[in-house]
Design a protein around this nucleic acid. Sequence first.
RNA 1: GGAGAGAUGGGUGAGUGGCUGAAACCAACGGUUUGCUAAACCGUCGUAGUUCGCAAGAUCUACCGAGGGUUCGAAUCCCUCUCUCUCCGCCA
Length: 424
Amino acid sequence: MLDAKFIRENADHVRQNSLAKHTQPDIDGYVKLDERRRHIIQQAQELKEKRNTVSEEIARLKKSKENADTLIAEMKTVSDTIKQLDEDLRGVETELEHIALYIPNVLHSSVPDGKDASSNVEIRRLDGINPIGIEAGFRKDHATIAKQLGIVDFERGAKISGSGFPLYTGKGARLERALLNFMLDHHTANNGYTEVFVPFLVNEASMRGTGQLPKFAEDMYHAKDDELYLIPTAEVPITNIYRDDILSAAELTKKHCGYSACFRREAGSYGKDTRGFLRLHQFNKIEMVKFAKPDESYAELESLVGDAEGILKALGIPFRTILLCKGDTGFTSAKTYDLEVWSPCEQKWLEVSSCSNFEDFQARRANIRFRPEPSAKPEFVHTLNGSGVATPRLMVAILEHYQTEDGHIRVPEPLRSYCGFDVI
RNA sequence: GGAGAGAUGGGUGAGUGGCUGAAACCAACGGUUUGCUAAACCGUCGUAGUUCGCAAGAUCUACCGAGGGUUCGAAUCCCUCUCUCUCCGCCA
C-alpha cells in the first residue's frame, strides 16, 4: 500500500508506474475521493469541537441547577449531523482503500525498462559441476529418472490429492528432507538468520499484510469455514510476525529464515509446465525474510541475493541471477532479482528463488515500524524476502546434473551427511 | 464442545456517565548532583489524521480489543464479534 499523501502528490508517477506493471488503478478517482474525504473530515471536526465545548457548558449548567434544555435540543441535531458525516466518511474511506489496495508498489529507479521477461537483465552466470551449454547425451529428464529410481511417485500423489501433489518415497523423501535441513543449517550458521517454524494456515489480515490479498485471492487455497488461507510462501507468516509491532533500531536488520510447505492453486496456468516438478500445487521452500532500516534495505537486498546464491554454489548447480524489468516485477515489489538454475533436459532456466525489496509497501499494510532513536517517532521498516531456495526445481537440477551414465544420482557432497547415502 | 474470567499507553496497572488522552509505578530519554560501573532529585515521555506554516511548530479531531447502540455527553451503560486465560470433556 502506498501512502495517501504520496499518491496525492505524485499522481502522475503512480499512474505511470502502475501502467509499467500492467495495471490501471483509478488514480483520478482516488485523488477526487481523497479530496472529498478531507472535506468531510473538516466539517465533522468543526461540529465535534462545538459539541465538545457545548457539552461542557451543559455539564456546568446542570451542576448549578440551571436549565439546559435549549442547548441539549440544539446538540441533538448537531450530533445527528455528525453521525451522518461520519457515515459518509466511512463510505469514502472504504472506497479509497478499495482503490489503494490495488495500486502496485513503486519501482526502484534502478529497475530496467521492459514489459515482460524478455527484457530482464542477466547479472551473473555461474557454472556449477557442469558448464552450462555442454550437455551430456545420456541424461534422462528429471521426471523419467525419478520414476526409474523410485524416488517420486507422481501417480500415487495424484491419487491421494490430485496432480501437482508429488509423493516422495524412500531415498527421494530423504533427499528432500536433506535439502531442507542443509539449507536451514546453512543460513542460520553462515548468514545470521534466526530460524522460525511457522503456521501454514493464516488469517485474512496476514494475507493482506504481505499483499496476497485482496488482489490475488484466486491463487490461494481458502479454508472458508474457518476463514483461513493456506500459505503460498513462508513470507506471509514470517513477515506478519511483527505486524502492528514497533521494533527498536538496535534490533535491525532483523533476519529470519524458515521452512514451510507452500500451497498454490496455479489457477490460470493449467497445461503449463505440467511435467514432473516444474509446477506444483504443494512444494517445500526455505524462505528468508529481513526487516531493515530504509537506508540500508538495498544493501540488504544484495546480500540477500548472495545468501540465496550461496546454496546453489554449495550444491554445484549451474545458475544465473537476473534483474527483473519493470513489467516483470511483482505487484508488491520495488526491485526483484530471480535466481534460475539450468535444466539441461528442458533446455530452460528454471526459477528457484525470487529476492525482493518491498521497501515500506508491506510494512505500511502490516503496520510494522521501528524507532530510529529511543524516543523518536516510529517509521515504517523496509521488508525484504527471498527464497533460499525452493526445492522442486532444485531437485530437477540435482537429478539432471548429478546423473551418472549408468542411470544413478550422485548425492551432492554437502547433502551426504544429511542423507546417509552417497548414491541413489 | 460445556462453564467462567478478562482485553486500558513500551510494560505493570488505576479508573463505572461530564473536571480522563487517561492516576500511579516501571522502562526509556534529557538534565542536576554526588564523582569509579550505581543512587537520589527535577523534567520529558502514546498513535493517527485535519487545518495553518518554508520549517520548527501550533490548532482541532479521533483512538482505552473490533464493530454497532443508548445519551446533549461514553474507557465507563447495552448488543454483537474477535482474541487471551482458567476449569471440565474429547482428541493428538
